[in-house]
Simulated scan of single mutants.
Amino acid sequence: MNRSETEAILNVHRLAFGEAEGEEIAQLAEDLLEHPETISISVRRMGQIAGNVMFTPFVFEDQPDVKCYLLAPCGVSPEHQGLGVGREMMETSINHLRSIGTDAVFVLGVPTFYPLFGFVPTDKETPYPNLLTIPEAWMVLELIAGSVEKLGGKTIAIAPFMHAHLWDTSQHG
């Protein structure tokens, strides 16, 4: 990925998350793009990146062979919101993850958006389970039937996600 495409992705996240969180999420996105196992999927409109979503490995310590990903960040630039970009991005991403044999995808996100694509609340632990004050925001999409049931115990995300404040839902009540 060239620098101008990276900048366009970062700008989408800056704009999508606004003044309050935009810079922090753009920095997170930049850190994730440097990780070789990050899957980054963008949707374009008129040749420009209109939305971007990233997936990074998410490991259950006791079941390291189950192939899980964490979905974050997911952003659509404001001028493209409500025009199907998010739907296209999610459908394309889910199809890609299914095609590479992903067992499950986890997300800490908006409880009214992700269920549109099959995500359901889960009782599986986040890396900081004591910070989950909005349980319905922690969701999973099972891509291989029966894979989530066997998961349990401590979870680990890649280094950029292993900061407690990123898992604290108390600020989003």
Rank of each mutant, 00 (worst) to 15 (best):
Glu34Ile: 04
Ile94Gly: 09
Phe55Ile: 12
Val107Phe: 01
Gly173Ile: 05
Ser42Lys: 01
Thr92Val: 09
Gln48Glu: 13
Thr122Glu: 04
Met54Cys: 12
Leu141Lys: 11
Thr102Cys: 13
Pro111Gln: 08
Asn95Cys: 11
Gln81Met: 08
Leu32Gly: 11
Val107Gly: 03
Ala50His: 00
Glu142Asn: 07
Ser99Thr: 06
Ala8Met: 07
Ala72Tyr: 00
Phe119Asn: 02
Ala157Thr: 01
Thr155Gly: 01
Ile134Leu: 02
Leu151Ser: 07
Tyr128Val: 08
Thr169Asp: 10
Asp62Asn: 12
Leu33Asn: 09
Asn2Trp: 07
Met89Leu: 15
Ala137Val: 00
Phe60Cys: 02
Asn2Gln: 14
Leu15Met: 13
Asp31Phe: 02
His13Met: 10
Val120Pro: 04
Leu28Thr: 06
Gly146Cys: 10
Leu33Met: 15
Leu131Val: 01
Phe161Asp: 06
Ala20Ile: 13
Leu83Ala: 13
Met54Gln: 15
Ala164Gly: 06
Glu21Met: 13
His163Cys: 07
Asn2Val: 11
Thr6Ala: 00
Leu28Tyr: 12
Glu7Tyr: 06
Ala159Met: 14
Leu33Ile: 13
Val53Asp: 05
Arg98Met: 09
Ser170Gly: 11
Met46Ala: 15
Met46Asp: 15
Gly51Ile: 03
Ile49Asn: 00
Pro135His: 02
Gly86Thr: 07
Leu28Ala: 05
Val85Asn: 01
Leu70Trp: 03
Asp31Gln: 15
Pro57Asn: 12
Phe55Trp: 13
Met54Trp: 09
Val53Gly: 12
Arg45Gly: 07
Ile158Val: 15
Thr56Lys: 06
Ala50Gln: 04
Glu34Asp: 15
Ala29Cys: 14
Ala104Lys: 08
His165Ile: 10
Phe117Cys: 09
Asp65Ala: 11
Phe117Tyr: 15
Met1Arg: 06
Glu5Gly: 04
Pro121Thr: 08
Phe55Gln: 07
Asp31Tyr: 03
Leu151His: 11
Leu10His: 01
Leu166Lys: 11
Gly101Thr: 01
Glu61Gln: 01
Leu151Trp: 02
Leu116Asn: 12
Trp167Gln: 04
Ala20Trp: 07
Lys150Asn: 09
Ala50Ile: 06
Pro111Ala: 06
Leu151Pro: 03
Pro57Glu: 11
Ala8Trp: 08
Asn130Ala: 13
Pro115Met: 04
Ser93Lys: 01
Ile100Met: 11
Gly86Phe: 10
Ile144Cys: 11
Lys154Phe: 05
Thr169Ser: 13
Leu15Gly: 05
Asn52Trp: 04
Glu125Ser: 15
Thr122Leu: 05
Met90Ala: 12
Ser40Leu: 02
Pro73Ile: 03
Gly146Asn: 10
Glu21His: 14
Met54Ser: 10
Leu33Arg: 10
Ser147Tyr: 07
Leu141His: 02
Ser42Tyr: 04
Ala72His: 00
Ala16Glu: 09
Phe17Met: 07
Phe106Leu: 05
Gln81Glu: 07
Gln81Leu: 04
Asp123Thr: 14
Ala164Val: 08
Val148Thr: 15
Ile100Glu: 10
Thr133Leu: 10
Arg14Thr: 05
Gln48Ser: 12
Arg45Pro: 03
Gly101His: 01
Lys124Ser: 00
His13Ala: 05
